[in-house]
Simulated assay, not measured.
Amino acid sequence: MSQTLEQAIAAGAELLAASSESAKLDAQVLLLHILQKPHSYLFTWPEHALNAEQQQQFNTFCQRRLNGEPVAHITGQREFWSLSLEVNATTLIPRPDTETLVEQALEVAVPATAKVLDLGTGTGAIALALGSEMPNWNIIAVDRVNEAVALAKRNQQRLAINNVNVKQSNWFSALENEKFNLIVTNPPYIESDDIHLNQGDVRFEPLSALVADDSGMSDIKQIIIQSRDYLLSNGYLLIEHGFDQGKAVRDFFKQMAFINIKTVKDLGDNDRVTLAQWT
C-alpha cells in the first residue's frame, strides 16, 4: 500500500533509527532523490501519495541504507560547497570537514591567476569548489585511479567549471617541470588498525583512499617532501589530516624547512588542516 510523503518519512526514519544517527534526514534525502524534488516539497505537499513504483523504490533504498550502504552511494550524488557531485564506490564521499580545507585555500595569499594543484582529487570536490570561487585560478586535479579521474572529469564537465583540468597522476608522477602557487590535498591518513574503518560509510569506501602506513603519516610525509620541488617561492601546501595528527604534521613541515606553519580546526573543533609556506 502506498504512503503519503509524511508517512513514508516517518516509516523510513523508524526503520533506519537503529543503524543511522541521521535516520530522518536519510529518509528525506532518499525520498527526494526518487521524487527529484527540492527539500521544500516535503513540507509543501506532505499529504502527496507515492505511486506504486516510487513506494517500491523507497522501500528498496531504505533496505540498502539499513544494510549500511552510504546514502551518497544509493543516490549517486553528494553536495559539497553547494555543488552537486556525482559519487561512486571508487572514491571517498566528500565530507563537510573537507570544506575547512577549501576555506583555508581561499584565504592564503596567492596571485590572482594562481597555479593550483589538487592531489588525490577523487570526485574533484576540492578542485571544483576552488575553481567555482576563483575563475582566474589555473587548477590541475590529479588522481592515480582511472575511475576516479573519469568521475572527476564528469563532474567538471557537468558543472562547466572550465579552469579545472583533471589528469591521471600518482601524486606528482605526471607533473614534470610544473610549479604551483598552491597545493592542496586530502590524502589517506587513517591507521590500518583504526576501529572506525569497520563503522559507518567508510566500510563502503576504497581502503587505498583512507589508509596509510607509519601511523597514517606515510602519504602526508611523501607529499611534504616532494612538494618542495613543485612549489613556487612563497607557495603554500595545505593538507587535511586526522584529528590527532596536527602536531606530527607541523613537526614534519618544520623538519622539511617550511615556514609559517599553522593548524586549523574543523566545525567539530578538531585539528583538520595544516598549512605551511615554502621559500
Results as ranks from 00 to 15, higher is better:
1 M>V: 11
6 E>Q: 15
9 I>Y: 03
12 G>A: 08
13 A>V: 11
16 L>N: 12
23 A>Q: 09
30 L>Y: 07
31 L>I: 11
35 L>G: 08
44 T>G: 11
52 A>Q: 12
61 F>R: 01
71 V>S: 05
82 S>N: 08
85 L>I: 13
86 E>V: 13
88 N>G: 09
88 N>W: 06
90 T>V: 14
91 T>I: 04
92 L>C: 02
93 I>P: 04
105 A>D: 07
121 T>E: 12
128 L>E: 03
131 G>V: 00
131 G>P: 03
136 N>G: 07
141 A>I: 02
144 R>D: 11
144 R>H: 08
144 R>C: 13
145 V>T: 11
146 N>Q: 09
148 A>D: 10
151 L>D: 14
152 A>F: 09
157 Q>E: 09
158 R>T: 13
165 N>D: 13
168 Q>N: 06
176 E>N: 14
183 I>K: 12
187 P>M: 06
197 L>V: 00
205 E>L: 06
207 L>Y: 11
214 D>R: 13
221 K>H: 02
224 I>D: 06
227 S>C: 12
231 L>I: 13
232 L>M: 09
234 N>R: 13
235 G>I: 06
246 G>W: 02
250 R>H: 04
256 M>L: 05
261 I>K: 00
263 T>Y: 00
266 D>W: 03
270 N>P: 10
272 R>I: 07
